[in-house]
Design a protein around this nucleic acid. Structure first.
Length: 554
RNA sequence: GCCCCCGUAGCUCAACUGGAUAGAGCAACAGACUUCUAAUCUGUAGGUUGCAGGUUCGAGUCCUGCCGGGGGUGCCA
């Protein structure tokens, strides 16, 4: 439809130019927008305003000329008008508007699919928590966000892969091992100092207790270094498993679990560093190996190998990104916490140093989550280990509400998560509001079946009976799904899906109040059952992308 | 100091990336169930878009400078 109208406008402009009604000027891409106000029609363009600004003619005059040359025979449109300062407004015919219901029936779960992604291969890497502790609430946000983004991008025609990068190597691991070691020794009554930078959470004590009960005191005989190593090897896979379990619980699954450790074992880190050195992008100074990131706009050069011989996290991350590039993705999206923002120019520079186009890497920086209970912020401290884990949140508010709430805000704004609201089973809670619309429709359809109402596919004439303003508005909303999908995918903004879901649910609830679906009029009943089925399908698709269930009864 | 994000109704956020009269939800107030689910709906009220300039036909949106909140600025990850 959009393309059709754009062609219509283009042809009219060409024609007008030919006739000399408007001067020869370069016309940029024609954009159609959905006007905010109903009176402004279904689609509008500001092209006349843009053209006029280059010619000195009045915008309305230009708009009038363009409309004058437009082919108005189309049965899809009922009206083309010049309005306001020079907008051209288009109005769909009711038949065209209603035809979307047939399209939904035909496409089913594929309705709203778009091809803007052009089948490009995209990798989305998200969560990527260190396997040294349970996932916290912030991880939950990125799990929900990354997963929904992947869903919406694949609906928009990208080939998407989900990846989790496991930081199972290096100092975090050691810290993890030393922390457990210290708690274990404490349990044995040994006088050990807990590491100042150790993980203070209670779960570390639990692990130590479990080790004591499983292995007894025999471990204490080993020397510290050996023991810490052993603890790491035993416990990080356990932790990783529990992370996977939590993510599964949220309905998030990854295509690839990529291990940092294996990158080292395969010699990839070494190879990558050598490559950079050979290219002259890295150099030795003060006993350390530095990457010349300043060449590519970074503030200062960055260390790859410390003077103590240990590679930095940056070094393995570069090797990791090289691996991603070599895997041939057209686009790689990393979802990182906002505290990594200083890291972005560095990584981009590294990409260039390796000879890759840095635009193949996109980093989404996510802001923090603040929990509120009883109107008060819930205090959390990483230092004391007082955190609310993702599992605890899921226990308390449930998966659907958690996912929905995590997805309500754009990734670059802070998220205030109101626990009390998320738990409420009332219309204030948008999750239930949307799910209720779905359940209500299922209930209507059950009733229809029960009384044996005619639910066969209606004819176009049947559908002509759908002429209440609320029902037309509702059907129009269904037709917007494709562009919502495109917007969410292109802007990496899955949060807009929640707004769309709420708009749709609200229109449906209004429709339900004003229009009875099952009536004595068989044709009207067929039409309304069909319409309501379409609404249910779209709600299902949207909730599916959000990762929220669509219940048939509540 | 420098860099990034944010600032819109009492609260939480939208505003289709420069368009027409800045919109929702919650909270407040007033109403609506003999009905296919009231977990719903209708109405009222609420604004100098942090401040000051600038750019143009047109600015919440772009530019400059302030103010406020958050984050970053390691041979940490």
């Amino acid at each position: 439809m959009r393309d059709l109208i754009i062609d219509l406008i283009k042809n009219a402009i060409d024609e007008a130019k030919k006739k000399g009604v408007i001067p020869e000027v370069v016309v940029e891409d024609i954009e159609l927008e959905r006007p905010r106000r109903r009176e402004h029609g279904d689609l509008a363009t500001n092209i006349a305003l843009l053209v006029a600004s280059k010619t000195g003619k009045s915008p309305r005059e230009v708009a009038g000329a363009i409309v004058g040359f437009m082919d108005k025979e189309s049965r899809l449109l009922t009206d083309i008008e010049v309005a306001g300062p020079g907008f051209i407004n288009f109005r769909f015919s009711p038949r065209f508007t209603r035809s979307v219901l047939f399209e939904i029936q035909r496409k089913g779960a594929d309705f709203g699919r778009s091809s803007v992604g052009k089948n490009r291969r995209v990798q989305i890497e998200f969560v990527s928590a260190n396997p040294v502790g349970p996932l916290h609430v912030g991880h939950g946000r990125w799990a929900a966000f990354g997963d929904a983004l992947a869903n919406v991008m694949s609906h928009a025609g990208y080939r998407v892969e989900r990846e989790f990068y496991i930081n199972d190597y290096g100092s975090q691991m050691k810290k993890f091992g030393r922390s457990i070691y210290a708690r274990y020794m404490e349990l044995l009554g040994k006088d050990v100092v807990f590491p100042a930078d150790g993980y203070a959470g209670e779960y570390i004590r639990e692990i130590a207790k479990r080790i004591l009960s499983e292995r007894g005191e025999s471990f204490a005989g080993l020397d510290e270094k050996e023991l810490v190593e052993k603890i790491i090897e035993m416990e990080y896979p356990v932790m990783l498993e529990s992370i996977k379990k939590t993510l599964n619980r949220m309905g998030v699954s990854f295509d690839v679990w990529f291990s940092e450790r294996e990158l080292y074992l395969r010699g990839e880190v070494e190879k990558t560093l050598k490559l950079l050195e050979d290219k002259g992008e890295a150099y030795w100074r003060d006993g350390a190996l530095w990457l010349r990131t300043t060449t590519y706009g970074d503030e200062k050069d960055r260390v790859l190998i410390r003077s103590n011989g240990e590679p930095t996290y940056f070094a393995s991350d570069i090797a990791y990104h090289r691996d991603k590039m070599e895997r041939g993705f057209d686009l790689v999206i990393n979802i990182w916490g906002a505290d990594h923002h200083g890291y972005v120019p560095r990584m981009k520079a590294a990409m260039q140093a390796m000879g890759y186009d840095p635009s193949r890497l996109e980093v989404i920086l996510g802001q923090l989550v603040k929990l509120y209970r009883g109107g008060e912020p819930v205090t959390m401290s990483k230092r004391t280990g007082e955190i609310i884990t993702l599992d605890e949140l899921l226990d308390e508010v449930g998966v659907d509400a958690s996912r929905y709430f995590f997805l309500q805000r754009s990734s670059d704004s802070h998220l205030d998560f109101d626990i009390d609201l998320a738990k409420k089973e009332s219309p204030e809670n948008p999750v239930f509001y949307v799910q209720y619309a779905h359940a209500r429709i299922s209930s209507i359809l059950r009733y229809a079946k029960e009384i044996g109402a005619d639910d066969s596919t209606p004819t176009e004439d049947d559908l002509d009976l759908l002429r209440e303003e609320v029902e037309i508005d509702l059907i129009k909303k269904l037709g917007e799904l494709e562009e919502v999908v495109e917007f969410c995918a292109e802007k990496r903004a899955p949060h807009r899906l929640t707004g769309y879901a709420e708009d749709l649910a609200s229109l449906f609830h209004g429709f339900y109040r004003d229009c009875r679906v099952i009536t004595d009029d068989a044709a009207l009943t067929r039409a309304r059952i069909f319409a309501v089925k379409g609404v249910r399908q779209v709600i299902r698709i949207v909730l599916g992308m959000l990762g929220v269930s669509a219940p048939d009864e509540m």
